[in-house]
Design a protein around this nucleic acid. Sequence first.
DNA 1: ATAGTACGTAAGATTTTCTAACATTTTTGT
DNA 2: ACAAAAATGTTAGAAAATCTTACGTACTAT
Lengths: 119, 119
Amino acid sequence: MSYRKKKVIPIGTVAELTGLSVRQIRYYEERKLVTPERTKGGTRKYSFEDVDILAEIANKMEDGMQTYEIRKMWEKEKEREALAQEKARKEMLQGQLNAHFNFHRLTDSRISDPRVGDR
Amino acid sequence: MSYRKKKVIPIGTVAELTGLSVRQIRYYEERKLVTPERTKGGTRKYSFEDVDILAEIANKMEDGMQTYEIRKMWEKEKEREALAQEKARKEMLQGQLNAHFNFHRLTDSRISDPRVGDR
DNA sequence: ATAGTACGTAAGATTTTCTAACATTTTTGT
DNA sequence: ACAAAAATGTTAGAAAATCTTACGTACTAT
């Protein structure tokens, strides 16, 4: 896994990196905006990705947005991305099919081009 | 700074990531093989780069190498890299000088071409 | 044999984090 | 306007994580 996604940073450090209070960070978890992992002992571990997400939350909150609005917004974003992904996947598949049949058409035209004739 | 170099990981997590004991990690610091940062409170914080370095140490140690050998080895590596850097820097500088004078020679030949004359 | 290396382990102190609860201020919904 | 919800701060006590120091041990090198 990438450095960005590995959950290794304790909450105090996250607070320093984001400028948020520990209280706020825990609250945003309660509102399902971040999902840290836990050690056996139960202490939270965040990733750099989480830090970025929290920084983004801080901005939206300053703009007067509410946690549930942020969450809904992100859910929609994810939805759109998923659709775009799906679309790209299908197009890619179609492309491969086209390439496949094109290849055969070209090959066949060489082998049996009437202007050339076999042998 | 890159995610790789930011010092944010506590020693327990580093131990998990590397498979080393906390004692070993502190000992390698004593032998100047890693240099974590500290929080205000004094707890150590490591980077992913440190984690990689520690994993490398673990290998060398398994091969029967001693800490001071590892350190000496790395110092030499750094030295060689520094020289290579310096060499590249000089070559780059020379290249720029060449380009510079080439440019002037061409320009001058236009402005003061004896076959054309000034004014 | 002595000294140095590379740890493990234990003790006690300090730092960090945890949950839960209550208080406060600012919205929001009816 | 009022009650409910949102978004924190604060406090308290417990638990987890880390710190330093020191002693012990098994090797290895000189």
